[in-house]
Amino acid sequence: MELQDRGKMHECQEKQLAGICRKLLDEGKGDVILAYAGGEIENSTIPLFIRGCGEIERLKYDEYCYPNLAKYLLENKGKTGIVAKPCDARAIAMYIAENQLARENVYIIGMECNGMKNMDGSLAPGCCECSVHVPPLFDVLVKCNGEVVEREQYTNTGAPAGYEDDAVFNAVTGESGNAGDDNGVNEDKPLEDKSLERFKKELDKCILCFACRQACYGCYCPVCFMDRTMPAWISTDPGMGAKMVYHLGRAMHLAGRCVECGACERVCPSGVKIRYLIKEINSFCKDVYGYRAGMNPGEYPVLAAFNKDDKEIGFLRSE
């Protein structure tokens, strides 16, 4: 898809969004709507909390809508509407599956998405290799061409609700699903470098600021194990040992729970690219248990479910 088409696509979607938000407020379906507004800095957007019609004028939807909105849902703001890209919708589905959120309290405005951009115009991390372009969960869907589809209508057409049906998607947009990944990691390709050296090289850059944890959809424990003091699990000395405990611990906690939004890499101030580790565990869950986080809110979380037919190869992957 040409760049100018992309711009037009978001313009169409933005116009529809404003209408939907106005309707939501009028009908009293949402006390607050989580959406995007233009940022102070060029090529950026910021989260917007719409509580009245006046704020709708600030609404923006363009190719820089990368901030994660779904995490605010955990703050219990009452009936909430949310503008959700596929990764955000997957996070919502995960929250519902993990009993963190009641489905009836959230109205999901799904956005068909072709990937968002970083401030510098490159494809955002997560978007590079994303294969889910239609949110798996929504109440109303705003398609790339600006068409608005209600949930009932959408299922009636028989189209799969957001599963990786790239063939259907590509027929619509005329673009190949995989835009390539300049980080050298591709979800479907086997990992090239699994060495300890690579891991250490990435960890070397880490300053243990925990920003990735705060930005992550999957990290919502009231008290993170890293924040426990009695006893303390690690020292705050950013040595290799503490960094390994943190990153491996986080990866294990995210096993089968990462919705591939890329927020961890986007927020990292020192460019630590550790997502490959979590992706590896994600693809393990997909291969062994056929599970992908946030694709179906009715599905039991993979590590909370027991099935006697499960393969017993364990985490070490030794058959």
């Binding site: 989260p47 995490k71 600021c209 925990f210 920003a211 705060q214 930005a215 303390a232 705050t236 101030p269």
Partner: peptide
């Protein structure tokens, strides 16, 4: 809107709060 990630304080040139461990 704040996520409490604290990155602002780590990269700030004047933030100087510290802890003893």
């Amino acid at each position: 809107r704040c996520l409490g990630c604290g990155i602002c304080t780590y990269i700030c040139p004047t933030c100087h709060c510290f802890d003893f461990r």
